[in-house]
Design a protein around this nucleic acid. Structure first.
Lengths: 247, 247
DNA sequence: CCGTCGGGTTGACGTGGATCAAACGCAGGG
DNA sequence: CCCTGCGTTTGATCCACGTCAACCCGACGG
């Protein structure tokens, strides 16, 4: 696998930033903090990094120092094993945290790649631990975020272990829809930032199967699909498909 | 599904306990703590619970208050969705923590069930947060444990998403072997505490497939299997099978 | 304008594991 | 001792998804 220009690049811009006037503060780490606590958090989030589509935020094997909050843009994380197989473990959007997997061994265990031009806030982890020893709310919120990641992963395990192809895709789309909605975007119409192949990798399916499922959903009038542009026409239908089925 | 005696029972014995003289302190939360810190931890781990095989430690939907450290015995956790499908999300043995999934919403999101007579230490979570604000090492260690759970889940996602049946079982057995070894037991010979069905649920396979894979491993002289008693005859062979294959 | 290229769609076919079904074997109870 | 029941094994068949291959289509460059 040759290193192309994008994967080789790790350069990025650094911008001064502050949580206290970030419009994501209701979505991100600062949730529920008092104004004076928020000010302390400002000192913590020292740098902002800009990444172009295809850039690596970090790579498996790199030393872990910071976690990252997505300020804008869209990421995927993936793990790969010796024999070449790989799997997308998640897609991260605005306000979500990246890098939690690195805490355990002080080494990142997956790659994080920008799927579109993006910005992240880097949060040095030792600072975060320091500050969360002072601010209960921050500590508790951080624990909740980690726990939520575990719960999310269990959901994916469920999906991979028990659902069939179309159920998986329906679950995936409904989840995306949900998350766009929470960010003030239309839950019914959005652009996929990832390829069919990346969706397949996440869902444990081949891209052809994903493509066929999209086509079938269109025939069933559940979706309108134009390349990566998705419009959900029948949310209930998708939900039913997700739980119902299974002979 | 009728509630039988075992599933209905939630009663348990309570025993006074102390981390400072627990022989698991190198495996469990106390890792790396100084003696005086250890003493503080003793106050925190207030109660020990005994469970019989089949007892629920907690159930999905119950209010989350404590995490639990397995002192002896063996557990499984599983999630289930409306339509009746369920999936085992993990097996926990001595020194491992249970209940981390409950932190995010203050409600347990899975069931934890003893697969043999077991004992756990209950650790009230708010106390743990309090103490980890005082003891850096404890705080950091706890974060590592949560992170390790995330990494583990990614491994399972990888397994479910990309491996075929025999690779999954090989990976599963090698993982168990590893964990028994870390606890001072033979890595080559052990008893499975779970049924073929539970293994299958965890690995995203049907019990028949698990059974056939066991039989095939025996033919290949990789294992000796007598019901739930497993002896690994060829670790390297299992490892090769795990990574190698794939046309 | 056309040629190329990468991602996506669609079709034909093969297969790994699910499903269905029968039989086995150990454990527990009478 | 035999009967019963559950977990497991094993076999026969089926089908969802993977594989392989052709083709489409919008983007981009010359």
């Amino acid at each position: 696998m040759p290193k192309d220009a994008a994967t080789a690049r790790l350069a990025f811009e650094i911008v001064k930033t502050a949580c206290s006037n970030c419009n994501l503060r209701e979505l991100c780490l600062p949730i529920g903090l008092a104004p004076e606590e928020l000010k302390k958090l400002d000192e913590l989030v020292s740098t902002r990094r800009r990444l172009k589509r295809g850039d690596y935020l970090y790579r498996a094997g790199q030393v872990f120092e910071s976690i990252y909050a997505v300020r804008s843009g869209f990421f995927k994380t993936d793990v790969l094993i010796e024999d070449g197989r790989d799997q997308v473990t998640g897609f991260q959007m605005t306000g979500e945290l990246l890098g939690l997997d690195g805490i355990s061994s002080e080494i990142h265990t997956c790659n994080a790649i920008a799927l579109e031009d993006s910005e992240v806030c880097a949060i040095p982890f030792s600072h975060l631990e320091g500050l969360s020893r002072q601010i209960h709310t921050l500590q508790h919120h951080f624990h909740k975020v980690m726990s939520r990641e575990i719960v999310r992963d269990h959901g994916v395990m469920m999906l991979l272990g028990t659902m069939r192809a179309e159920e998986r895709l329906a679950a995936f789309l409904l989840n995306l829809s949900q998350r766009f909605k929470a960010r003030g975007y239309s839950p019914a119409e959005f652009n996929l930032r990832m390829s069919r192949d990346e969706i397949g990798s996440y869902l444990g399916l081949k891209l052809e199967t994903v493509s066929r499922a999209f086509s079938h959903f269109q025939e069933e009038k559940l979706l309108a699909v134009h390349q990566r542009k998705i419009r959900i026409l029948n949310t209930e239908g998708l939900k039913k498909l997700m739980t119902h089925q299974r002979g």
